[in-house]
Design a protein around this nucleic acid. Structure first.
Lengths: 165, 165
DNA sequence: CTCGTAACGTTCGTACCCAAACGATTTCAG
DNA sequence: CTGAAATCGTTTGGGTACGAACGTTACGAG
């Protein structure tokens, strides 16, 4: 039971505070809900599945990406996970220290480095991901299938709208 | 034009990689879209509106919260913004160094501290928020009104599902 | 009263997070 | 060929981000 203000209360207070301004409240509260939902979901998955396995959210996303795509060059991993390449350097260092991933320098272009799961990394993903996905399924379970489809499609539209510079 | 894999491509690759497992792909891709959308929106708003004004995302949220609610005790601010109270201490320090907020210790209960915008903080919010909201409106503009309503409601449901422990 | 307990904000250690600067490598124009 | 420009991953510096431990203050049972 969070003692914070609910999203509905924030919406009401916002209108009172700035109702004299010509603002798009619908957009504001849609994106506030987006931010809070992403935060809440991330926190829930981190606490129930990731932390017991000593993984961070970002570290897990890197592992998951490499699991799906087998091997990937670092800047692609960074872009796929949604972090800067500088951040990836640090995260990869952490994962390498645990022998979950390995670096593979390119022989054709010596500027390039690929990342790949180690057997131990594969083992960890095979163990963790079913549980991770089960929690995802639980979280999403309270939203009807039709609404979930609309939500997912709308979110993808937002990604495109935001990235169009 | 992002050179990363699109969400649709990730979805296809995921199915190929783990199709033999009994997983909830719908949930997985809904939440992946949620994470990416939140990241993209945050990045867009940060780059176009916040960074030119030397504000971080979290710093802005703290200012915005105090603007809406006038004055608030620190743990409420942290909860409202979605950060830990330890993080808030650091962010508040940064904002205080710029004279955008001020600390108000409680006289009745000397453990409590409230935060409040300074006149300069109010001035900054009055200047920035209309522009912030305008960008929000642009981002959301590609989603129809009906879909946006469904999306926002679904996101609120996700917040509740995630926070129910 | 008074001591145990709970609640507050801060501090601490570790890990992320970004933009900018950097050195190394490749490419391409002349 | 050769040097300027582009691209790669890393490093750097400052700012979040968290949980746990901490010192302070308030409260409640006896």
């Amino acid at each position: 039971m969070p003692d914070r203000h609910t999203l509905a209360e924030v919406e009401r207070a916002t209108r009172e505070r700035v109702e004299h301004l010509p603002l798009d409240f619908t957009a504001s509260h849609a994106l506030l809900s987006l931010y809070r939902a992403a935060n809440a979901v991330r926190g829930r998955l981190t606490n129930t599945v990731l932390r017991p396995n000593d993984l961070t959210w970002t570290g897990f996303l890197v592992l998951w990406t490499l699991w799906i795509w087998d091997s990937m060059e670092t800047r692609e991993v960074a872009d796929s996970v949604g972090i800067s390449k500088g951040t990836l350097t640090g995260v990869a260092k952490t994962l390498m220290a645990r022998d979950l991933i390995e670096r593979i320098p390119s022989v054709e272009d010596r500027r390039l480095v690929s990342l790949k799961l180690t057997p131990e990394g594969v083992r960890l993903m095979e163990e963790i991901y079913p549980e991770f996905n089960k929690t995802e399924s639980t979280i999403v379970g309270d939203v009807s299938a039709e609404h979930l489809t609309v939500m997912t499609d709308s979110l993808r539209t937002l990604v495109e709208s935001s990235e169009a510079e």
